[in-house]
Design a protein around this nucleic acid. Structure first.
Length: 113
DNA sequence: GCCCTGACGCTCG
DNA sequence: ACGAGCGCCAGGG
């Protein structure tokens, strides 16, 4: 029942929206938080749709290497990097410096079966 | 209804 | 240690 694909998106948005300023997380962490650690790809896919939502700071979401893999999908070329730097996160060559220090692990949402 | 693509991640060579 | 390939889920043509 609550396993609808659309629900998957909502979960992703919910987690990303909870990312505090100056913090970042990875697709895999979100995927795991929503109960689908293997759906890391789908998480990124959901982020693409989240572009229409302002409540979803997609620029705070990077891959497990701390690389701005999705910056290419942003408005400009370094728009994502600019946003992260504005929050105090140092980004060089699409790579977040001290990624671990800025890493924020999302809380696991309770799946309502 | 089938095939391909995609903002990832892990395993194998 | 590095590179290539496969698996995962969902959407679009």
């Amino acid at each position: 029942m609550s396993k609808l694909p659309a629900d998957f998106y909502q979960k992703v948005y919910a987690v990303v929206r909870q990312i505090p300023k100056g913090k970042v997380t990875s697709y895999g962490a979100i995927a795991k938080a929503i109960g689908s650690p293997q759906s890391s790809r789908t998480v990124g896919y959901a982020m693409n749709a989240s572009h229409n939502l302002e409540n979803v700071p997609a620029h705070r979401v990077v891959n497990r290497n701390g690389v701005l893999t999705g910056k290419h999908h942003f408005s400009g070329t370094h728009a994502m990097q600019q946003l992260l730097e504005a929050e105090g996160i140092e980004v060089i060559d699409d790579q977040i410096i001290n990624f671990e220090a800025h890493f924020w692990e999302p809380e696991v949402l309770e799946a309502k079966e």
